[in-house]
Simulated assay, not measured.
Amino acid sequence: MTNLERLLSQYAAYHLDRNNIVTHFVGIPLIVFSILCLTARAGVEISGFSVTLAMVLIVLSSIYYISLDKLFGVLMLILFALVYPLAVNIAALPMWSWLGASIGIFVVGWVFQFVGHFFEKKKPAFVDDLIGLAIGPLFVLAEFVFLLGLRKPLHERILKEAQMKRAEMDMKAHTVS
């Protein structure tokens, strides 16, 4: 099992309900976008070029995602590049408008997340493993790719492993109660 399969199947074990996955299609992009908005305002000028904290986060997370899977990593980088200009525009708003929009988007994203976990009847994955915060965006991208009917063998391996992990989680929950 590759590192990608291990991480995605661990995350997927908390996300087997279709309603939960759908809410994550909205919630996670909103949360990631809000973080870009919040961090696009902090930066430095280097030889007349503005380097923002958001850019640094995009580069570092893209390197991480590419190290896990080249296709998913490049797709994630493309998505980041597409939304970055909008994040910069929001960061350029007056202080309270920028903060209000960024925090508002963040809160709405988390509301979607928690509604999804209500359907799932499971806590979010990051509660047990903080790497879930980094894997969430990759999970949503992978689920979208799988929804398009692409990379079926990978999807089947992840789903099979996630179902086994979920069964183990459920068994532990029953023995503790």
Rank of each mutant, 00 (worst) to 15 (best):
N20S: 12
I103S: 04
F49P: 01
M95P: 14
F25S: 11
V111W: 01
L150E: 12
P94W: 09
G48V: 06
D128Y: 10
F80I: 07
L30H: 04
L38N: 02
E168C: 00
L99H: 05
F106L: 09
G132S: 02
I103P: 00
M164A: 14
E156P: 05
P85D: 11
E45F: 12
Y11H: 09
S102M: 00
A12D: 12
A12G: 08
Q163N: 05
R157D: 11
T175D: 04
A92F: 12
L38R: 02
Y11V: 04
F49E: 10
T52M: 02
T23V: 03
R41N: 15
G109F: 00
A173W: 02
D69K: 03
M76F: 14
L71T: 13
A101T: 15
L4I: 07
K70Q: 12
L8I: 11
N19Y: 09
V127R: 03
L130A: 11
T52K: 03
A54T: 00
L8V: 07
M1E: 08
S62K: 06
L30V: 02
P29G: 09
V83I: 15
F72R: 08
S9F: 04
H174F: 07
V26P: 02
V176W: 08
S34W: 00
A162M: 08
L148H: 11
I46L: 13
K172P: 00
V107Q: 08
H174T: 07
F112K: 03
L79A: 15
V51T: 05
P29K: 04
L8M: 12
V140P: 04
W96K: 13
I28T: 13
K121S: 15
H174I: 08
K70R: 14
F72H: 08
V59E: 08
G104A: 12
